[in-house]
Design a protein around this nucleic acid. Structure first.
Ligand SMILES: [Zn+2]
Ligand SMILES: [Zn+2]
Ligand SMILES: [Zn+2]
Ligand SMILES: [Zn+2]
Lengths: 157, 157
DNA sequence: GACCTATTTGTTATTTTATAACATTTGATG
DNA sequence: CATCAAATGTTATAAAATAACAAATAGGTC
């Protein structure tokens, strides 16, 4: 969301959801994992693993090596609390972690905001296409790059 | 296509198309670029850049450094003769290079065959979704991972 | 609490993928 | 054949991710 909003609310509710979901699933949201999730939620822009490593170093004042962060990311992906944006090698918080769902994103090339779209019509279309090809879906990613509303306005002025 | 077919025909027609398209577009399909394209078309499986580097080394008996191959790949992507599979960091020949189009793939996790699906219904659905969000599309990728027909049969036996 | 075990995190080294910067070669054009 | 732009060669390095093993920590059992 590049529109003005109370982002602290996004962060708080994401962390709350995460606590609840993990508890329900019997998954351990350790301090490290929670901290990584919180850093990912600092914005609505996909964040690189090494960005997170640097942010962690700033925050905790001890260097965190790549495997530590990648393991936290793997956990968060597994549980469904974040998504990976393949075209950017980056990670972003899931807007609706309570249900497993495919990962559809509109990603602005200007402001780098990524907005998640869980569209049923689209989902059905992809299911149909797969069925026509006798293909059994395991995972799917849709990444649409372009200009968000705000950035169209700004570039057209 | 994991089904039996005369693959030499795929290679030949791909290279022929490439020649024609490049001529029409005033783009230079140099020997190196053509060789890289031919290697990519050796199968219907996405091929990594370093796979190509190794294959080139085998074929030409002189080592080819990464930038050389990446430049060829950039050219082929630009012209639309190949697509990049982001979830695999790999490259595959385009089935319909004569028209620019989004990149939709069904990718088998077992046999690694990737089949390109240029589905208009899907395209429209994505256009609608984007319009609803006032989003102007520049590029798009859909990657569906799962089991192809053949591999379902084999794993169920 | 003491002990055991599985999970998580730390640490070091390395692999895989991709690009920057500059030198050399090639090929079209006059 | 001289010139210049495009393409390729070369060396070094950046960026993203993982392998392998060590240490610490959290829960369950006696
Ligand atoms: Zn989500
Ligand atoms: Zn934007
Ligand atoms: Zn194509
Ligand atoms: Zn298959």
């Amino acid at each position: 969301m590049s529109t003005c909003h109370n982002h602290q609310h996004c962060i708080d509710s994401a962390l709350n959801n995460a606590e609840n979901l993990c508890q329900a699933a019997g998954a351990r949201l350790t301090p490290l994992r929670k901290q990584v999730l919180e850093l990912i939620w600092q914005s609505h822009k996909p964040m690189g693993a090494y960005d997170l490593i640097n942010m962690l170093a700033d925050v905790s004042e001890k260097t965190i090596a790549p495997p530590t962060v990648y393991r936290a990311l793997d956990f968060l992906l597994e549980v469904g609390l974040i998504h990976r944006i393949n075209s950017l090698n980056a990670y972003i918080g899931c807007m609706e972690p309570s249900t497993k769902h495919p990962s559809y994103f509109l990603i602005c090339t200007q402001c780098h905001t990524a907005s998640e779209c869980n569209d049923n019509g689209l989902s059905e279309q992809i299911n149909n296409l797969s069925q026509e090809n006798d293909f059994v879906i395991e995972k799917q990613w849709l990444e649409v790059l372009g200009l968000c509303r705000n950035c169209q306005i700004q570039t057209s002025v």
